[in-house]
Amino acid sequence: MSGFLNSSIGRKVAMALSAFFLMFFLLQHFAINILSVFSPELFNEVSHFMGTNPLIQFALQPVLIFGVVFHFVMGFVLEIRNRKANGVKYAQNNGAANSTWMSRNMIWSGVAILAFIILHFIDFWFPEINTKFVNGDWSGTMEGVEGYRYYEELVHKFASPIRVGAYVIAFVFLALHLLHGFTSAFQSMGGTAGRKKTLQTIGKAYSIIIPLGFIFIALYHFFNH
């Protein structure tokens, strides 16, 4: 297995598999978040389940963290190796003639997403871990709030225009990253279907609808506040 991961194709496959996992995670994250627009009660129920279910907390969450870290580390490793393979730079290189801007700038959209994830962790994940694992409070409630606290926390976070602005920009980069990444992952897994019309359409739809949906949620809570 280590031999496989040390090969160029092995790294490609690993990159694609972690991408599939992250794209699936993103889909369920969106499905839960959009509930906050329609029903705060349902959003609270589902959030409490996700936040306290032992299978999700102790089995799936570590897998997710590993997937995120792996995708970023491997992305940077590949970028460094590819730069080394380049040799002398061209005096004139017309990349736009044969490839999309998204495909040539995955590292930069990736760096933007990494910056966002750091902000996102500071906003939600670290406080959540602090509450549950440091303070040992698994009740999902807080003082001054009736029922579960999750909806209240979410709304509170999206009151700041700077934070909402940062989130919107990050989701634009996420869309750009996905516009190449979605079909690219299928191509890496050996699927020529990655280049067929249907899958390209699904890829485009996913890459635009999901980030746009996240932007909608952020703006909805900002203006609804």
Binding site: S8, L78, K84, N98, S99, S103, H180, G194
Partner: peptide, 14 residues
Amino acid sequence: GFGNCTNTGACEVE
């Protein structure tokens, strides 16, 4: 020492 493919598709076009 060739690099790793990232499916930009530039090769196919050129």
